[in-house]
Amino acid sequence: MADPLLRLEGVHTHIGQYHILQGVDFTVPEGGITMLLGRNGAGKTTALRTIMGLWRPSRGAITFDGRAIGGVATPDIALAGIAYVPETMAVFSDLTVEENLILAARSGPIDPRRRDWIFSFFPAMQRFWHAPAGVLSGGQKQMLAISRAIIEKRRLILIDEPTKGLAPAIIEGMISAFRELKHEATILMVEQNFRFAAALGDTVAVMDDGHIVHRGKMADLAADEKLQTRLLGLALDQHQ
């Protein structure tokens, strides 16, 4: 088996006095979509932020593409080829859609082919190209945040709850967009919507209380309802 693209070994993260990650181990294989699931407060967002260098791990090792990135500054992690779509989307609302993407395209002007490719699955980006991102709807902001992560090719994309607060129709559109995306990048996605996760995920890791409690194929977890109930609780699928 080939080396995984990303590996976390015994990662601990403290935020102030709170011990959030308490020894997290999992790997993200190259290619495909890995889902990181778990209840609210399990530490999924903290795990993504720790990988991105936005929290400093207090212990443990994070290896990306054979290189140790634990404790490395966020910009260097980004430059190593990891893109990040935070839960808050964090679009720059004072900047236009175009300006948001100009900043995301670090290496130079936006490649028009790539721009058109994005327009093909997020047409709203074209419509609002010159509008300040602040006027976009929640779903459009999410599309912009994802577009920012893919305007240039990256090795790994971290995405935190892309479906949060979105209408079902938009979620369907997201599914096809991600199916398209996974041909060129590896994706690690935190998700609450199990149906969405099951439709997209190749592999899965489940977190609870700062630990990884399950690892395996997404299809296996999707088929085993008992396991789902035990790991994720009953209400998970319903409350979305």
Binding site: T74, P75, A78, P86, F92, L103, A104, R106
Partner: peptide
Amino acid sequence: RAGVENAEMVEALGYRI
């Protein structure tokens, strides 16, 4: 301008704020 709004995201895009 982006940094004034969200410095962390500017870093996550790969710029040294």
